[in-house]
Design a protein around this nucleic acid. Structure first.
Length: 510
RNA sequence: GGGCGCGUAGCUCAAUGGUAGAGCAGUGGCCUUUUAAGCCAUUGGUUGAAGGUUCGAGUCCUUCCGCGCUCACCA
């Protein structure tokens, strides 16, 4: 690896020289203290409020922000600065600041610099509310030019972006630059924050207690996924980054809480694609004395509530599809859905061999080692999932892929589990939780047999979880949902990386 | 991991195997109500990396790196 010394480009050298020249003039390019009286939008609103009031005094303001555009015109400079609230135009005139100051601004200030400017708010001849600057100061000199974007505001008020940063690799690796110039990217993460807040409000309002459970776990579980492995030096112990919260949250029901939830990060050491990131955010809740029917109804309410909070409505457009969240979700029994869409009645194929044969008859590639449940899941992915554009619950899943779910009464091969879908992808997963410790131990053993010892997805036996359950666990319904995917729906993004601030990319020496 | 595609200036993109270019940004000028400001001039490149074919490679071949789409995988 080469040394980490940054090789400055000519553009950067220019700006370093500008910073040096400012210092020579006794101007600190990175001062400690800042004055600010208004945000850009507050100044504009204050002006608008008093504009038609003849007797009102002019609005004096000290504003701060980053220079996003500059139009020098001889003895006058127009510039836009951008702060957290928006943009406002600066009007800097030799008459107001003096020729020396104007020249200083024109020669040493660049796009991307943070500045402070004071003056009176007014409206220019063309009607734009602006700050007539009589004093300004640099707050932070930018050395690297932002990957320049020029915005054109049409007469309809539409913003047309010219030559912005669009290369996805650079956008993700240098998210700070992406955010700095692409306002709509900043908006994505405001929506994301709104989704988290709405989820918390929803759960809190219904008496669910927000808790935090271990991320570093001696035994991973609650899902079938490969974990990340790490090591505690002093304890000389292997630890896993959690793949789900489930087993810890249900221990809390044993402890006496009736309703708990957690929003946090899961880690799965698996493939990366447009709906999978190695770390992702989940919400899980466990609800004592509820079953999966109750959980379905709560899910409908929850997603509708989040939509209302985040978008103001109950209809969303996702990748060209209108999705209606105002109504109850479609309920499709898994078996019926497969008969209808795959023309396969799974009851006629009670074992993996016969089902695999039926699938091969449909020209499907079939993993010869796959257990029956996994084959059924393949059928769902192939025939059912892509058709579920409107919100839908697929319910009653095969027992052998659901070791933590309770049997359907009178049906030992099926469990009370559902998955929620919309826009053609899986959004959530829930079941009536298994709370019989003897049955649970049996299920763990079955899972152990379903996978070979080397298989990293093999379900490890969690003895402590069984011990907890033996103390008595109330009947309960549990639920998990990907917050990233939910955010994708509300931001109309097809790639999970668009809704993760710093998505994982392969390391690169650059 | 497989298939397909992409990688050229700070950004967005051109360039039949034949002198690497444009717009924006930058730099130097002109310009006191502009807003993709305008006008004149001008700097800027190890064409992702390394090999190879060729008189000659951004272009063709091989390998590698990275990204995208897709398939597989992911209860």
């Amino acid at each position: 690896m080469e040394d980490n010394h940054h090789e400055y480009t000519q553009l950067e050298k220019n700006r370093l020289e500008k910073a040096a020249r400012l210092r020579e003039q006794g101007i600190e390019p990175y001062p400690h203290r800042v004055q600010r009286s208004h945000t850009s939008q507050a100044a504009i609103q204050a002006f608008e409020a008093l504009e038609n009031d003849e007797g009102a005094e002019a609005v004096q303001a000290t504003l701060v922000g980053r220079i996003r555009s500059m139009r020098p015109m001889g003895k006058l400079v127009f510039a836009h600065i951008e702060d957290g609230a928006g943009r406002i135009q600066l009007f800097i005139r030799a008459n107001d600041v003096g020729k020396e100051q104007l020249d200083l601004f024109k020669s040493e200030f660049d796009l991307g610099d943070f500045v402070e400017a004071s003056g009176e708010v007014f409206r220019t001849r063309t009607g734009e509310i602006s700050l007539r600057v009589n004093e300004f100061r640099i707050l932070a000199k930018a050395i690297t030019p932002l990957p320049a974007a020029k915005d054109e505001v049409t007469e309809e008020g539409e913003v047309v972006r010219h030559a912005s940063l669009t290369d996805p690799e650079t956008r993700y690796r240098q998210r700070y630059a992406d955010l700095a110039i692409n306002e709509e990217v900043r908006e994505i993460f405001r929506v994301r924050a709104g989704v988290s807040r709405a989820l918390r409000d929803f759960m809190d309002d219904r008496g669910f207690l927000e808790v935090e459970t271990p991320i570093l776990q001696p035994i991973y579980g609650g899902a079938a996924a490969k974990p990340f492995v790490t090591h505690h030096n002093q304890l000389k112990q292997e630890l896993y980054l959690r793949i789900s919260f489930e087993l810890y949250l249900k221990r809390l029901l044993v402890g006496g809480y009736e309703r708990v939830y957690e929003i946090g990060r899961d880690f799965r050491n698996e493939g990366v694609d447009r709906t999978h990131n190695p770390e992702f955010t989940q919400i899980e809740f466990y609800w004592a004395y509820a079953d999966y029917n109750d959980v379905m109804r709560l899910t409908e309410e929850m997603v509708r509530y989040v939509a209302e909070q985040v978008t103001g409505g109950t209809t969303i457009e996702y990748q060209g599809n209108q999705i209606d969240l105002s109504k109850d979700w479609q309920r499709i029994e898994l078996k019926e859905g497969l008969i209808e869409l795959a023309s396969i009645d799974i009851d006629e194929y009670p074992d993996a061999e016969s089902l695999a044969a039926a699938m091969r008859a449909k020209d499907m590639k079939v993993d010869p080692k796959a257990p029956r449940g996994k084959l059924i899941d393949t059928l769902i992915g192939e025939f059912v999932e892509p058709t579920l554009i409107q919100p839908s619950f697929l319910y009653n899943y095969p027992r052998d892929i659901s070791p933590l779910a309770k049997n359907l009464p009178g049906d030992s091969a099926t469990v009370e589990r559902f998955e929620g879908f919309m826009a053609g992808f899986e959004l959530c997963n829930a079941f009536t939780e298994l709370n019989d410790p003897i049955e649970q131990e049996l299920r763990f053993q079955e899972m152990g047999r379903a996978y070979t010892d080397e298989d990293e997805e093999r379900h490890p036996m969690d003895e402590d979880y069984l011990r907890a359950m033996r103390y008595g666990m109330p009947p309960n319904g549990g639920f998990g949902m990907g917050v990233d995917r939910l955010t994708m729906l509300f931001t109309d993004k097809a790639n999970i990386r668009e809704v993760i601030l710093f998505p994982h990319l392969r390391s690169r020496e650059d």
